[in-house]
Every structure is written in structure tokens, then in C-alpha cells.
Simulated assay, not measured.
Amino acid sequence: MEVSCRGPLFVGIDIGGTNCRVALVDDSGHVLHRRKEALRDLSFDACLEQIGGLVTAVLQGQAKSCDDIAAIGVGCPGLCYAGKVSAAANLPGWRDVPLAQELQQRCGDRPTFLVNDADAALEAEVWTGDESIRDVEDIVLLTLGTGVGTGILSGGRLLQGSRGCIEGGHVIVHPGGRRCGCGQNGCVEAYASGRALGERYMEKMASTAQPTEKVSGEMVVKRARAGDQGALETLSEAVEALALLCIALARILDPQAFVLVGGVASAGDMLLEPLAT
């Protein structure tokens, strides 16, 4: 259904390690049309092709074209700076790829801006999220999806570092621990991401000779709610890793609030209550 809108229109692109979401929004942040697809091939060229198709589908859903949009905003995991993705643990092969430039060329040469996905999520929460944090100037946001990302607002300013290399998910909390996709051992992401939850749960089931199909982080959360001991232990490990990260960030940044988003955050009180204590 086409929605009438008099103000400028924008396309938002959220690239994850598993899915891609594209939305057409107005200048108040209202979503007019959206699409989501699982990424079929994580190579850079294949992702560009799929994302371009999603943008076209979203625009056509509102009888629009690239000529009708003012700009494009892209959130992507990994080290994002000056329009490029330097590296992304969950997007293998993405090394110094000019993501913003390539998407701009595919989308009618509309101005295209790239930021880390956690930074984009934080900006969105402050802009259109819960009213309780809209005027808060010191916030840490953690994205708990395929990976673990960190967005930081300090004194009302988004912190991105000198090269866009703020990656809380790759803070080491268990030296010599589980191998992370970034190549380090013991990162928060190796315990608290959706991918890690699924992998760790399957390892526990294998050690007890209880065969299980491949499971996602969301499935582990559901099984934990049902009292599955292996799932409860896996979730407890994730909580411990996140708690260590939050304690360190709290000591350094003294934020007014922590915000958790993403699939693993669906654990709700099972995650928040132990973190709060």
C-alpha cells in the first residue's frame, strides 16, 4: 500500500551477519515500507547484489524510485570508517571494501552514509526509541545478534574513535577462552552472541551424548525458559561475559543507562535481572 508523504524520504539499510533489512522512512523516522531477507552468500559482491535488490523492492512497494529519496543510511557490523568496512568478523572477506561508494553507485548516486551497526542502532534509539532515553546524553547500547556490537553516546556525542574501531564485543573477558571469529580467544562475542549461544549449547549437548539439531541463539533462550539445563548453563555463561563487559564500560564511561537490543535480548528478565545484580 502506498503511503502519502510530503517530506524527504530516506532508505535505511541494516546489514547483519545473518540477515539484511531495508526500510523506506520519512524525516520523522516513520517506517513506510520494509523488507528483510537472510543473506544467501556473505561475499561482498553477492551481498551488494542482494542489498540492491532489496532497495529496489522496498522503493517499488511505495511506487518510488531512487530519484525520490534524499539519502541512504547504512549500518554494518565491523570496523566502519570513511565509507569503508575495514574488517568484519562475521562477514568473511570484507577487507577495506568501499561499501558506501558501491551502494551509492547502485542506488542512483544518492548520498550514502555508512556507520557501524551498533552506532546506527544507538542513534535510532535516541531519535525514535523509548522516551525515557531520548534526553539522556550518556548511554551504552549493546547489540546482541549474530555478533556483539557496542554504541556509545558520551556527553551527547557519538564516540567512534580515531578509526571507527570501538568494538566492545571483542573485549577479552576470558583470556585463553573460546575462539572468536575475529581470531582472538575469550572475547565477549564468543560467549554472548546469538551464534555463540547456539554453538555452545550444541557443544554441551554433544558432551552429554544427547544429539540435537543446529540451534539458534533465540532457540537457546526459549529452551532456557522451558528449564533446559544445558540452555540455562549456556545463557549463564553469556550473562557472565556481558556483565564483565558492562562493569568495565561502567567504570570507564559512567553511563546513565545501558540499552540491550537484538535477538539475544529477547531473553528479557533472564538476561537483565542477573546483569543488574
Rank of each mutant, 00 (worst) to 15 (best):
L91R: 14
S86V: 05
T208H: 05
L197G: 11
H33L: 11
I69Q: 15
L54K: 00
E131W: 04
G149D: 06
D14P: 01
F113E: 01
T212L: 14
C76E: 04
R21G: 02
A250I: 01
F258I: 13
F258Y: 12
R225Q: 03
Q105W: 10
H170N: 02
S162K: 05
I166G: 00
E123K: 06
T277N: 09
S132G: 05
E125M: 11
K36F: 15
T208E: 13
N185R: 13
S266R: 06
A57V: 00
G177V: 08
F44M: 12
E125R: 02
R6C: 09
E189M: 02
H30L: 08
T112R: 08
V136H: 00
L54I: 01
A88I: 04
G169S: 02
A276P: 00
A206G: 03
E137R: 07
D269C: 06
G147A: 14
A89F: 09
F113W: 09
G161E: 11
H30F: 05
V188M: 05
R95E: 09
E233D: 14
A209G: 14
E199R: 08
I51K: 01
G75F: 06
Q184A: 07
H30Q: 11
E123I: 13
S43D: 15
G52F: 03
L153H: 01
S28M: 06
G268A: 12
R178L: 07
G17W: 04
